[in-house]
Design a protein around this nucleic acid. Structure first.
Lengths: 219, 219
DNA sequence: TCGTAAATTTCGTCA
DNA sequence: TGACGAAGTTTACGA
């Protein structure tokens, strides 16, 4: 990884045109050839960048980074304030816990979260337009399709609506009810879901996790 | 801006739990207090980060970054390979061209892009579920709602469908036709739109821009 | 390669 | 401050 602090001007010509006037910034050149330009604020997003795979050609005072789609990042360098190179090696990678897959796993183990007598038919129930997160039966044996999100927004309701439309065409399954389950559901999503007869269930991830294991209480 | 190359372990405890095993990485501490941890690949996304506003407390071998919501980034430092500080000052900022707002502006100026005799009623036409990008009338005086995207995908068609459903309940306005306009429309979005009687219009941004001004020809 | 869905999305705007 | 939608979204995962 190469770290360059330099007074530079940056121009991106690609999906849009973007221009950064001459000013001191950090330029990162990584082992995969990618380049990013950072200001002295914001942790997450670079001011400008070129994602790998791409190719850097370096002339005195002018760097060009080009990718296969013909997008270009042009860095004009006026003055170099710092320049160092560091070998880091491949990163062992990030381990995550608490994402949607895990939430689905927990709800599959505890279908009664949706109501007394609910049972799981299967996870990732296949349909022509993709798998439904959970297919359940309620206490009376009626089919219930469940869409799970970490944050419930309108997109998720639309997704479940498409599944329900399709599933209800199957006479062996119909009628299929819908449940929209998420850790947090946005007001507009709740309104749309309710309007379409879809029930909204807000899930407490930590509480649900506590049912199956006592991991959390160990801390 | 402080640049630290260090052998470190990183743990994030917040919206989820994430863990990075001990390995050499770049740690960026910016003037706004934000911290990000980078591996030697990927230009855009850090491995781990804490967005501003947040607060860094530094002990020998252990850094803690905490924000107001109680999220925490814990960095255990085993060995420092490089450590430097650089004053950059405030960045003049990025100038962009070619985003959706600009596309909407151009199409508002040239409603005849959608057909001879088309006129603009108004931009950001208000409805109960949000504003429609453009409301127009065709040559016969019939209402046409236009949804504009840079890239046309399924969710854009769904969005327009919701607007049309609502607008067509208004007897003073109905029938309202729909146009889905974008620089590029994905095949699946085109299929869904067509199935719903929504016309798709692919817009050439540069050509459209050329109509109003000759800026581009100056280059 | 294309398409779809997730993301600690982040980032702006507007009420 | 919260909600909503755009983003050069990026990134990961299937078909």
């Amino acid at each position: 990884m190469r770290l360059l602090i330099a007074v530079c001007q940056v121009d991106y010509i690609g999906r849009l045109t973007a221009h950064l006037p001459m000013a001191p910034r950090l330029i990162l050149v990584k082992a995969d050839g990618s380049v990013s330009v950072h200001a002295d604020d914001r942790a997450y997003k670079p001011l400008n960048w070129m994602s790998p795979p791409c190719h850097l050609t370096e002339e005195p005072g002018l760097w060009r980074v080009i990718n296969k789609s013909g997008e270009e990042l042009r860095i004009t360098i006026d003055e170099v304030l710092h320049d160092s190179e560091h070998a880091l090696g491949k990163d062992p990678g990030l381990q995550k816990d608490g994402v949607e897959a895990h939430l689905q796993e927990l709800l599959a183990e505890h279908p009664d979260t949706f109501g007394a007598g609910f049972t799981l038919v299967r996870r990732e129930y296949p349909t022509a337009i993709g798998p439904v997160d959970l297919m359940c039966r309620d206490a009376s044996g009626a089919s219930v399709a469940v869409e799970i999100k970490r944050r419930g927004e309108i997109d998720g309701v639309e997704q479940l609506t498409r599944y329900l439309e399709l599933l209800n065409r199957d006479p062996l399954l119909a009628p299929v009810a819908g449940i929209f389950a998420a850790q947090e559901i946005k007001p507009q999503a709740k309104v749309l879901a309710t309007d379409r007869g879809i029930r909204c269930v807000t899930v407490d991830y930590h509480k649900l996790r506590g049912i199956g294991s006592d991991e959390l209480t160990l801390f």
